[in-house]
C-alpha cells in the first residue's frame, strides 16, 4: 500500500510547520521555557510527526520528504527525551563547594601528579649538579641561564633604581596577562593529554618538574635560597597546585580511558568523569588568574622594595589558605547529602 502523498502532505504540512516554529524557539535560545500547554502541544506535534515519518518509511516513494521529516524528528527528539536535568547554581556555591569536593574525589590523581613532578625535579637537580652546563638545554627561559648570584645582584640593583622601577611598573599588566594565558594553556594541554591514556600528562608533569628542580638546585647551590623562595613562593604556592590540579584532571581522564577496575564501558566512564574534568580545569584556571596577578605585581618586586621575609610570609599564608580551602570547603554539604 502506498499513501496518497499529495493529500498526505497537504493534511500534515501545517503540523510540521508548527513543530518547526517550536524548534526555532528552542534552538534560538538555550534557556527557553514553555508553559505546560506549550509543552503538551510540542509533545503532540513530535508524536504526530514521528508517526508521519513511520508511515513514510513504510509506504512512501519520496526520499526528500523522508529526509525532511527525519530532520524534524531528530531536532525534536532531544527536547522530548532528555532526562538529564540542568544543574543550576551560583558561582559562589560552585567555588565554595563543587570545586573542592571534585578535587577531593580524585585526590590520588593529584598526589600522583605531584609525585611525577617530584621525580622530574629530582632528575633536574641531579643533572644540574652533575653537569652545570646542561642548564642551557634544560631551562627554556633566558633569564635563568646566567649565574644566580649575578642575577640577584642585578635584580636588587634594578629594584633600588626609581627609574628602572617605573619602567618595569609600566609593563606589569602585560606581563600578568601573558603569564595567565600561558599557564592556562599549559593546564589545558595537561588535561587534554589525558586522552593519551595519561602518558602525555605524565610527560608534561615530569618536564615541568625537571625545570623546577634545575632552577632550585642552581639557586640553592649558589647560596641564593632566600631570594629564590621570596621570588617563587608568592605566586608558586598557587600556580603549582593549579597546574597539578589540571594534571590531576588529565590523569582522571587517562584513567577513564584505561578503565582500570571497572566493567563500565568507555562511553559510560567518560560520561561519569566529564563534570569533574570541567570543574577541575575551571578551578585551576581561576587559581592561575590569581597566581598571574601575584607573580606580576608582587613576585617581581625584590629587596629593598619589599623585604624577602614579607614575600615568603605572604606565600606561606596563601598556601595555608589554599590547603584549608581544598581540604575543608564543601564538607558540610557532603554530610547533608549522605544523610539525605
Amino acid at each position: 500500500m502506498i499513501l496518497d502523498l499529495d493529500q498526505f502532505v497537504r493534511r500534515e504540512q501545517g503540523f510540521w510547520k508548527e513543530l518547526e516554529s517550536f524548534l526555532g524557539k528552542f534552538e534560538g535560545r538555550s534557556d527557553t521555557r514553555f508553559t505546560l500547554e506549550d509543552a503538551r502541544r510540542f509533545h503532540y506535534l513530535f508524536q504526530r510527526t514521528s508517526s508521519d515519518l513511520a508511515k513514510i518509511q513504510t509506504f512512501s516513494a519520496e526520499p526528500e520528504l523522508k529526509r525532511y521529516l527525519e530532520t524534524l524528528v531528530a531536532r525534536s527528539y532531544p527536547h522530548v527525551h532528555e532526562e538529564r536535568g540542568r544543574r543550576r547554581g551560583s558561582f559562589a556555591g560552585w567555588f565554595a563547594s563543587t570545586f573542592p569536593r571534585a578535587f577531593r574525589r580524585h585526590y590520588k590523581a593529584f598526589w600522583l601528579a605531584i609525585l611525577t613532578a617530584l621525580v622530574g625535579s629530582a632528575f633536574g637537580t641531579f643533572v644540574v649538579l652533575a653537569d652545570p652546563d646542561s642548564k642551557h638545554v634544560l631551562l627554556p627561559f633566558s633569564h635563568l641561564l646566567g649565574d644566580p648570584s649575578e642575577r640577584v645582584a642585578e635584580e636588587e640593583k634594578r629594584a633600588a633604581d626609581p627609574e628602572e622601577r617605573a619602567d618595569q611598573g609600566g609593563r606589569r599588566g602585560t606581563f600578568s596577562a601573558y603569564l595567565m594565558q600561558n599557564n592556562i594553556r599549559v593546564s589545558i594541554t595537561a588535561l587534554a593529554l589525558g586522552l593519551t591514556y595519561g602518558v602525555g600528562t605524565f610527560i608534561v608533569m615530569f618536564y615541568n618538574g625537571t625545570i623546577l628542580g634545575a632552577v632550585f638546585a642552581d639557586y640553592i647551590h649558589a647560596g641564593e635560597s632566600e631570594f629564590l623562595f621570596a621570588w617563587l613562593l608568592p605566586h608558586g604556592v598557587i600556580e603549582l597546585p593549579a597546574i597539578f590540579i589540571a594534571a590531576q584532571a588529565g590523569l582522571v581522564l587517562g584513567r577513564a580511558m584505561l578503565g582500570w577496575g571497572t566493567n563500565v564501558p568507555l562511553r559510560g566512564r567518560l560520561r561519569r568523569v566529564r563534570p569533574d574534568l570541567v570543574t577541575l580545569i575551571l578551578g585551576a584556571s581561576i587559581l592561575l588568574v590569581w597566581a598571574g596577578l601575584v607573580e606580576s605585581f608582587l613576585s617581581q618586586h625584590h629587596e629593598p622594595v619589599i623585604p624577602y621575609s614579607v614575600k615568603i610570609a605572604f606565600g606561606l599564608v596563601e598556601l595555608v589558605l589554599l590547603v584549608i580551602y581544598l581540604a575543608w570547603c564543601g564538607r558540610h554539604e557532603k554530610r547533608e547529602e549522605s544523610r539525605g
Binding site: L191, L193, R274, P275, L277, V278
Partner: peptide, 14 residues
C-alpha cells in the same frame, strides 16, 4: 550538555 561542549573544545589542544 554544557560539560560536553567545554570538554570537546578544550580537547582541541590535542
Amino acid at each position: 550538555k554544557g560539560t560536553q561542549i567545554v570538554v570537546r573544545n578544550l580537547m582541541r589542544a590535542v
